[in-house]
């Protein structure tokens, strides 16, 4: 079933993707058929199954609290489209 166009528009905004009006129809149908396909999984009974977090049996690993990273300002800022005085510069975002 095709996805509602208003939902497609909303997802597009949340994903920061520009979708023009004449693309909407096609995307609605494509996303709809993906959802339908995923819906199939609901038919499996998973009531008593814990969510799986990986294919191996490893437990969470913890780091020691040591400073051993950072201190490379120039690398962090290297790809910035615009910078000023070691700060990233972006269009004004103000509340």
């Amino acid at each position: 079933m095709a996805m509602k166009e208003e939902i497609v528009r909303k997802i597009a905004i949340l994903s920061r993707i520009n979708v023009s009006d004449d693309e909407l129809d096609n995307i609605s149908r494509e996303l709809g058929s993906i959802i339908d396909w995923i819906e199939l999984l609901k038919e499996v009974d998973t009531q008593s199954v814990e969510p799986m977090t990986g294919g191996t049996d490893i437990k969470s690993f913890k780091r020691e609290d040591i400073v051993n990273d950072g201190g490379y300002q120039e690398k962090i800022l290297k790809n910035a489209p615009s910078k000023n005085d070691n700060l990233f510069e972006v269009p004004k975002v103000v509340e």
Partner: peptide, 27 residues
């Protein structure tokens, strides 16, 4: 209160030079 960040080894000291305590994870 800790020495380094939650998921990276960059320092948490207050008032450091901008972007000097940033790891690739934090960026």
């Amino acid at each position: 209160t800790s020495k380094s960040k939650l998921f990276s080894g960059a320092s948490v000291n207050f008032g450091a030079d901008p972007n000097s305590q940033v790891s690739f994870i934090d960026a």
